[in-house]
């Protein structure tokens, strides 16, 4: 498979602190998520990919081009929205985007800037100084400047941080729409896993500067959710008390009428489950393996590693 982003054993340290430790990240076309805890190395990875930080070892490429040496060529084809944005606050949004369109060599920067503002729903604020923008407007402006160069790939660092639920939802919908209509790929870092749930096709998980796992979400879900069961049983409270005493069971919880149970060995659990029900004289109405949410996959992977 050809990857848009590919890193091979990237090492990056600041002084004695190793932030990226032989990082092997792969990102295909489509909408990809890059998740990890605070301080796990997400923003540093983006810095390396954009040629802002020089790795001490390994190599990173985007579109097959070296991220440090060919950074200028790469930036012609990508758009970026950083987590902490520093747009010129005294500019109006239209003036700012006009400059950015000019940087990308667009022939009619003003026209392009107006199109971008319309695209993200900021046209009404085109003459407002950026310093008067709300957090949500700031994020939409960030998306507009990332899209103005008609990129093949857009890198978004924590795009939904600090914005309200409706702003978050409209931003995520916009990302999906842009991907479907204009075939733009997105690489999104976040720790809001529920956001990725709605839009993501590929997931890479970073922990302490290393990729602990990555792949298509559906494959990861199958792989890691094999241990999660949804059980319908009479007397769920009595049932769960028994489950919690078993070494085979990692954890169990009740949601509605169902018992959700994570186990160490699914094959063994298949055998044990009817036996426990019979022992407790409960009626086992049904049970099935559950395809987990991204959050569950993430927790599973982190636990396992």
């Amino acid at each position: 498979m050809g990857f848009l982003i590919n890193t091979n054993n990237i090492v990056k340290a600041f002084g004695n602190s190793i932030v990226l430790d032989k990082l092997n990240l792969q990102v295909p076309k489509g909408i990809s998520g890059f998740v990890g805890r605070n301080g796990s190395g997400k923003t540093t990875t983006i810095g390396v990919l954009l040629g802002l930080l020089k790795p001490q070892g390994g190599e990173a490429t985007i579109f097959g081009l070296d991220c440090w040496h060919n950074s200028f060529e790469i930036r012609k084809k990508i758009g970026v929205m950083h987590e902490i944005t520093a747009y010129p606050e005294s500019f109006t949004s239209i003036r700012f985007l006009e400059h950015v369109a000019g940087f990308y060599g667009r022939t009619n920067p003003r026209q392009k800037a107006m199109e971008a503002l319309r695209e993200v729903g900021l046209f009404g604020a085109k003459s407002k100084p950026i310093k008067t923008f709300s957090a949500g407007m700031f994020k939409r402006l960030g998306l507009a400047q990332a899209l103005i160069g008609e990129p093949e790939l857009v890198i978004l660092d924590e795009p939904t941080a600090n914005i309200d639920p409706s702003g978050r939802s409209s931003l995520l919908n916009k990302i999906v729409e842009l991907h479907k209509e204009q075939d733009i790929s997105f690489f999104i870092t976040t720790h809001m896993l529920s956001d990725l749930e709605k839009i993501c096709e590929w997931l890479s998980i970073i922990e302490e500067g290393k990729i602990v796992d990555q792949g298509y979400v559906k494959d990861l879900a199958q792989r890691y959710s094999a241990n999660l069961f949804k059980i319908e049983v009479t007397q769920p409270h009595q049932f769960i008390e028994k489950l919690k005493t078993m070494k085979l069971v990692k954890n169990a919880r009740i949601e509605g009428d169902f018992v959700y149970c994570k186990v160490h060995n699914p094959d063994e659990f298949y055998v044990e489950l009817p036996r426990i029900a019979t022992q407790l004289k409960l009626q086992l109405k049904g049970f099935q393996r559950v395809v987990g949410t991204i959050e569950e996959i993430y927790e599973e992977i982190i636990d396992e590693k």
Binding site: L52, S71, F72, R75, H82, I84, A86, P88, Y104, G149
Partner: peptide
């Protein structure tokens, strides 16, 4: 201030040398 506030980072995200 353009280094500490991140403006250089923003500019270096565009195709500028």
């Amino acid at each position: 201030s353009s280094i500490s506030k991140g403006e250089i980072k923003t500019l270096l995200s565009y195709p500028l040398k």
